[in-house]
Computed example of a mutant assay.
Amino acid sequence: MTETPSPSSPRAREVLWTGRDTRGFDLAQMALSVHEEATVPETVDRVLDFARAAVDCGHAAVVFVHARRRLEIVASTDPAIAALIEKQVEVHAGPILSMVNGCDCVLVTDTETDARWPAWASTAAAVGFRSMMGVRLYASERTMGTLNMYDARPHQFSDADVQTAHVLARHAAIALSRVQDSENFSRAIDSRKLIGQAQGILMERYALDQDRAFEVLRRYSQDSNVKLRDVAQMIVDTRRRSHPCT
């Protein structure tokens, strides 16, 4: 009779990373780990580590999509991936753009024979990537970006890998959304404090009340096409330079 290893044993850990039929526990551990990270870079780095191990790929990247379909490489394990993003932006076609436009998953079995995006595929083959798999990162209905995996071997990714990638991407999107909301909230609080400091400086310097001081800040922001927070920062910085001991 074959002995079943303890989940915490070294043998069990090896099976978790290499066995196709035991990924459930592996992904559970991944989910707990990803949700523990406190910042976007930490979360993304952890996602890339798990992605490379869970689907046995050479490299991985997380790409965010911003307004007007602008793509940003948040993190990658190979600088050559940047060339693939640039090529897609240049020719307005490629697997990441397909996912950004609503496709949940893209699988490229061999970049030397794939005919869907010839410019992108030839670039990928030239930098040494023969296989590619990508899944969409989304929270609620909002597409955040994509999780992309690459390998030098053709036909590297299986249907099981696709399912694993979807589970990983879902947890990653939830974790990233939570971290982004937390960071945005912190920035909003910091901005309110900064604007309050600038208002206080204007009130003291020009004998203004609170509403009038805010109106001065707002009008300068609009007239100069500068964010309100940046206007407040300039006023606070000017005060500090004028009064270095304060």
Score class of each variant (00 low, 15 high):
Arg13Gln: 13
Val15Ala: 09
Gly19Tyr: 08
Leu27Glu: 00
Met30Tyr: 11
His35Lys: 13
Ala38Asn: 14
Ala38Gly: 12
Pro41Trp: 08
Glu42Val: 07
Asp45Ser: 10
Asp49Leu: 12
Ala51Gly: 09
Val55Asp: 04
Val55Cys: 06
Asp56Ile: 04
Cys57Thr: 02
Gly58Asn: 07
Ala60Gln: 05
Val63Gly: 05
Arg69Cys: 05
Leu71Asp: 00
Val74Cys: 04
Val74Phe: 02
Thr77Gly: 06
Ala80Ile: 05
Ala82Thr: 10
Glu86Leu: 10
Lys87Pro: 05
Glu90Met: 05
Ala93Arg: 12
Ser98Asn: 04
Met99Trp: 06
Val100Lys: 06
Val100Phe: 04
Val100Pro: 03
Gly102Met: 04
Gly102Asp: 03
Gly102Phe: 03
Cys105Val: 05
Val108Tyr: 07
Asp114Trp: 03
Val127Cys: 12
Val127Glu: 09
Met132Lys: 01
Met132Gln: 12
Glu141Thr: 14
Tyr150Pro: 00
His155Tyr: 07
His155Pro: 02
Val162Asp: 06
Gln163Ser: 15
His166Lys: 09
His166Arg: 15
Leu168Pro: 12
Ala169Asp: 04
Ala172Thr: 09
Ala172Trp: 00
Ala175Asn: 01
Phe185Gly: 09
Ala188Glu: 15
Gly196Tyr: 02
Ala198Met: 11
Ile201Phe: 03
Arg205Lys: 15
Asp211Asn: 10
Asp211Tyr: 08
Ala213Thr: 03
Arg219Pro: 04
Arg219Asn: 08
Gln222Gly: 04
Ser224Cys: 14
Arg229Cys: 08
Val231Met: 11
Ala232Cys: 02
Ile235Thr: 06
Arg239Phe: 13
Arg240Ser: 02
Arg240Phe: 00
Arg241His: 02
Arg241Tyr: 01
His243Gly: 02
Pro244Ile: 08
Cys245Ser: 14
Cys245Asn: 14
Cys245Ala: 14
